[in-house]
């Protein structure tokens, strides 16, 4: 058993047992060698179908006066295009990145919202691999764009040498900036998404299982306390709903900010 804070050792313990990661990460549906196909992968594929299907359906008519569906689609597209792309990357350079930002936002949003849909209740991003995958794509994109637009030297100069600093300080600053921009940036980009989804989901599970335990097993006076944990669970549910949307936005926003750093001239 691992002794860390989130995985409480199972065993012949009596009393309340907090849910663990294993309760969250369901066993695979089928396995081929190391390839274990689980619910999470199914959901990822489903999200592709949902996002692509919805927006292609919304845009199918291209009506001048939009229907309700088209209006929602346009609103979503307009948000990704204007508030994420145009305003942050800049009006002269945002056009090529609109598909990436749009895809990132809605892919993550749908995958996050799985966590709040009854019966599905599994935010895909609570599997760290998915978050890594997105962060790797984002990292490759913004580093690639930066090197292509500015050239290798200028790009790394911009990334590691902030201007307006006395040259002596560069000795300390360059490693720090390199660490923070080149290594910690992608790691936190992925882990922020993962941690919020994972933590939020686990917190809801703890509240829910505690409620269940108090009602089913403790009984008597303790059953009254289940009201408290139940309310807590509902509160956490709505908090999580909010966080799911915000994290999808933050991920895309940070991607846009990083891209802006790659596109803009040295500062």
């Amino acid at each position: 058993m691992i002794s860390n804070g989130l995985v409480v050792a199972a065993g012949e313990q009596q009393g309340y047992q907090a849910p663990t990661i294993d309760d969250m990460h369901l066993p695979a549906i089928f396995e081929i060698g190391s390839f274990a196909f689980g619910k999470q992968m199914l959901l990822v594929m489903l999200s592709v179908v949902i996002v692509a299907g919805f927006f292609m359906y919304a845009a199918r008519k291209r009506a001048m006066v939009p229907s309700r569906t088209q209006f929602i689609g346009e609103m979503g597209y307009g948000m990704a295009r204007n508030s994420l792309g145009k305003e942050i990357i800049g009006a002269h350079a945002y056009k090529p990145f609109v598909p990436l930002l749009f895809t990132a936002f809605f892919f993550i949003l749908v995958n996050n919202l799985y966590g709040s849909i009854p019966l599905i209740q599994l935010p895909t991003m609570s599997y760290v691999g998915s978050a890594y995958a997105l962060a790797i794509i984002a990292y490759v994109t913004w580093v690639g764009v930066g090197i292509k637009r500015k050239g290798l030297g200028t790009f790394f100069k911009d990334m590691t040498m902030p201007s307006g600093v006395p040259p002596v300080i560069y000795v300390i600053l360059i490693p720090i900036e390199f660490m923070s921009n080149m290594l910690i940036r992608p790691a936190t980009h992925a882990l922020r998404l993962f941690a919020t989804m994972f933590g939020g989901h686990l917190a809801i599970m703890v509240a829910a299982s505690l409620t269940q335990y108090l009602i089913m097993e403790a009984g008597g006076f303790a059953a009254l306390a289940s009201v408290g944990s139940g309310v807590l669970g509902i509160f956490l549910f709505f908090l999580e709903l909010m966080i799911q949307c915000i994290q999808a936005y933050v991920f895309t926003l940070l991607l846009a900010v990083y891209l802006q750093g790659s596109v803009s001239e040295g500062h």
Binding site: V48, Y132, A133
Partner: peptide
């Protein structure tokens, strides 16, 4: 590793469609 692969592939397919 398969999570990464599946998610990346899914994302890229979606990116392509978009």
């Amino acid at each position: 590793i398969w999570e990464i692969a599946i998610t990346a592939i899914g994302f890229l397919i979606l990116l392509f469609i978009v």
